[in-house]
């Protein structure tokens, strides 16, 4: 499903050249629950941006569902993000002036789904994440855990194959964090490919596979059993 070959990402900051990714090769298959871990500066955020089609590689190839991403332009990448990837962010990234259901409907709006259908689907998704009674609340009227569940519902709006979560529990206390991770686990067991970027080993425990990055390279790529023997 995800095939990354010899990918590098170079940033130029004035005369400073930073190799954020320095030759990464990895495959992620459908139905996997992968944690990408590493200290800050290891390149995990850059890798997430590449996988999420938010950014493009400097060299190497990235193929997502048979789509060679580097050959696509910004607008086509927007469509791919819209259809293939559900984002979950550390800071939730909900739009504050819109209600929960409006936030969930947004990816469907850009997918040009009819309004009635959007409302139906968004309501359904909010029910699924346990917020059926909070649909018309604005983000500021919801707790952190509730906001993150809204953003999970939003990530599922267009039925993407991949859920990409960047430090999904980073802004939550450990109890609500666990609830969110359990929700991700459920999604994974229902067939979604889940990729979690985190520096927290506790979070990584929920994954079936842990990829550790260091200095822009893959330091280790192990199945859960191998990590936590």
């Amino acid at each position: 499903m995800i095939n990354i070959q010899e990918v590098t990402k170079r940033y130029e900051m004035g005369s400073n050249i930073v190799m954020a990714l320095d030759g990464i090769t990895l495959d992620i298959h459908e139905g996997e629950f992968v944690a990408i871990v590493g200290p800050s500066g290891s390149g995990k955020s850059t890798l997430m941006n590449i996988i999420g089609c938010l950014d493009i590689v400097t060299s190497g190839t990235y193929v997502l569902n048979q789509i060679p991403i580097q050959e696509y332009d910004q607008d086509e990448l927007a469509d791919i993000r819209n259809q293939q990837i559900g984002f979950i962010f550390q800071q939730f990234n909900l739009l504050p002036s819109f209600t929960a259901i409006e936030n969930v409907m947004m990816p469907m709006t850009y997918a040009k789904v009819a309004k009635k259908q959007r409302e139906l689907k968004a309501a359904q998704l909010l029910q699924t994440v346990g917020l059926g009674d909070r649909m018309d609340h604005k983000p500021t009227e919801l707790s952190g855990g509730q906001q993150q569940r809204v953003s999970i519902a939003r990530a599922l709006a267009n039925d993407p194959a991949i859920i990409l979560a960047d430090e999904p529990t980073g802004a939550l206390d450990s109890k609500t964090g666990k609830e969110v991770l359990t929700l991700l686990k459920t999604l994974n067991s229902n067939g979604k490919t889940v990729i979690v970027i985190t520096h927290d080993q506790e979070v990584a425990r929920f994954a079936n596979r842990v990829i550790t990055l260091k200095d822009g390279r893959v330091a280790s790529d192990l199945a859960k059993e191998e990590v936590y023997v």
Binding site: L54, D79, F87, N93, P107, Y110
Partner: peptide
């Protein structure tokens, strides 16, 4: 800017 970033991440095209 952040809102624009969110909208783009969720699939908004430039023209939109």
């Amino acid at each position: 800017t952040r809102e624009i970033g969110i909208r783009k991440a969720l699939g908004a095209r430039r023209q939109q």
